[in-house]
Design a protein around this nucleic acid. Sequence first.
DNA 1: CTGTTAGCGCCTTCAG
DNA 2: CTGAAGGCGCTAACAG
Lengths: 364, 364
Amino acid sequence: MTHDTHGPVATPPRPVRRPTLAAVAERAGVSLKTASRVLNDEPNVATATRARVQAAALSLGFRRNAVAADLARGGASRLVGFVTGDLANPFYSAVASGIERELRGRGLQLITASSDEDPERERALTEELIERRVGALVVTPTSHEHAALRDELAAGLPVVLVDRPARDIEADTVVIDNRGGVRAAVSHLLAHGHRRIGLVGDESRLWTFQERREAFVETLAGAGITDPDRYVRDGAHDADRARAFVDELLALDQPPTALVTANNKITVGALHALRDRTGAASDRQERSVALVGFDDFELADLLGVTVVGYDAAEMGRRAAALALARAADPGRPTQLVVVPTRLVARGSGEVRTSGSSGARRTDA
Amino acid sequence: MTHDTHGPVATPPRPVRRPTLAAVAERAGVSLKTASRVLNDEPNVATATRARVQAAALSLGFRRNAVAADLARGGASRLVGFVTGDLANPFYSAVASGIERELRGRGLQLITASSDEDPERERALTEELIERRVGALVVTPTSHEHAALRDELAAGLPVVLVDRPARDIEADTVVIDNRGGVRAAVSHLLAHGHRRIGLVGDESRLWTFQERREAFVETLAGAGITDPDRYVRDGAHDADRARAFVDELLALDQPPTALVTANNKITVGALHALRDRTGAASDRQERSVALVGFDDFELADLLGVTVVGYDAAEMGRRAAALALARAADPGRPTQLVVVPTRLVARGSGEVRTSGSSGARRTDA
DNA sequence: CTGTTAGCGCCTTCAG
DNA sequence: CTGAAGGCGCTAACAG
């Protein structure tokens, strides 16, 4: 993989030597400070001097060293850290994109790190970003223990939690209206005649699923369903696992006639399971089991999947805005932003109870 | 939507004051350098001293200042910059994820910036990252002019191009086997009896599309098609535009019987166009127009869409690896990594010529 | 308008 | 094994 250099050995292993501000100043025949003023667009420099410095900088190919500048300024860098679950997951990358968009034009840069939902990795990454002296930290917390974050908050670092709040610290937070979303999903299914409704979720350790589960059970109970958690399953960490859970649910003696899937990955798994069930021709018309998924996804419209949607990028934007607001005013009260959800009916949730079981509200 | 928590207005507007190494040293009763040695796991420190320093650091909540450390070390920071088109696009976020994965464990951090495919923004972001003194730069170039990058390369900064090569600079590059992929797609369609095949692409300015287009035309020409670019369209910057192009193509007197879509967004648009065409029940069985898309996507299997796939995350990994290799050996010859593609047949590309036009290889 | 003097927090010699 | 000095590249006071 590594061959020898041919031709003139060009770049000697020198570690990227660059012209310094001092060099520019010397070339322009001015003091360091004056050069600094020019390159930072500060006032109080004669036009002629300014031009000389600029010319010198240009001819030397000068590039300001932001690292040194931040250090000298004594504060945090113009970097915002984002500790997330997994950049490959569209939800997280949408959030990242939203954060970046909000930072844009303010001279702030985004530095991301994926924890893979591993609490220990999350801690390590947070630590690394703090060492890098980020000016703010946005976190999608996986763990329940945030001692490090508490220290930082106390030290005055803006910390914003996204998607999941933390019990042990008081920080600005952006979450989805999980309960409202699930309530809408379940109500929708109930309105279409379903009484045996299942829920497939990921980790019961995660706050989001806890919320979704509770709202699910409450809504069913409120509708007079006697055994609301009868068809609740958790631990579907990936699409394949979700698929297995759905298969299992549908194989029951009295299988659910409708399903709620707690996130995009699970919805995918469920769709696969349902497809296999109806055979190759998996059109919405032929689906016997109703489905409402949490999280919207591209092509859901083509597949005719009813979902609970929300704006993930907006969550990122709001998170970044909260961080900026706190940086500007450390004393402001912490804020909780709840991003609304909307039920998008596309067919899969509107399938009515029918067929084999012939159940027509005979239960409950 | 936005509630306020109250609580005692705690943090006064101080700019995050932190314990320094000097403070740790003093607390432990040792010199700065000794404390430094301990916290950097350097040898030549008595076990007892080491323990004292560690205790002091812990009790003070000391956190190494990576910014100052990098400055003092005089070199680049342990940051890798990634200038990409748009993090919200799954292709780019997959690449980002791959880069991050490769950096992981080496103490390197990823800092990403989205150009939105705007050359000027790309230039500005590149500049910013350089000012931040990133240790390496990975770029998905949108522009054709890379003067800034050339300077950096000359200065010894590892620069890796991903997805699109640059003519004006010599840098390590990772690309997809675009020609091979398109060749496979077109051959597949030809083998299924199609002679009138269309291509919908994005920007003819982009190298990737140029490659795909040329391979498309060549392959058709090689098969004896007289007018290979008859159904070629470009300028489909988003899914909606792509949809319009497809509608237009299919409205021709002699419409194409098969389509190749040049990227994931265009495939989505085309699917919508085809769905609208066949009415609500858009099952693969009923699709009259064959389709092969470049870029695989989630649920493509459920939708039965035949695609040219490849491993985007792998591209990121390879790019990061190239950057690391060059950092280790600046003199090594530049390398071109071509990531292979594979045709994944799922039904939409296997639709045969038939129906209204009744064309049975009568043309050409 | 311009320059001088001190650091920012840490690491790197090079002596003890 | 340990420490003292010097400096990374830049900015922030204060002078002139």
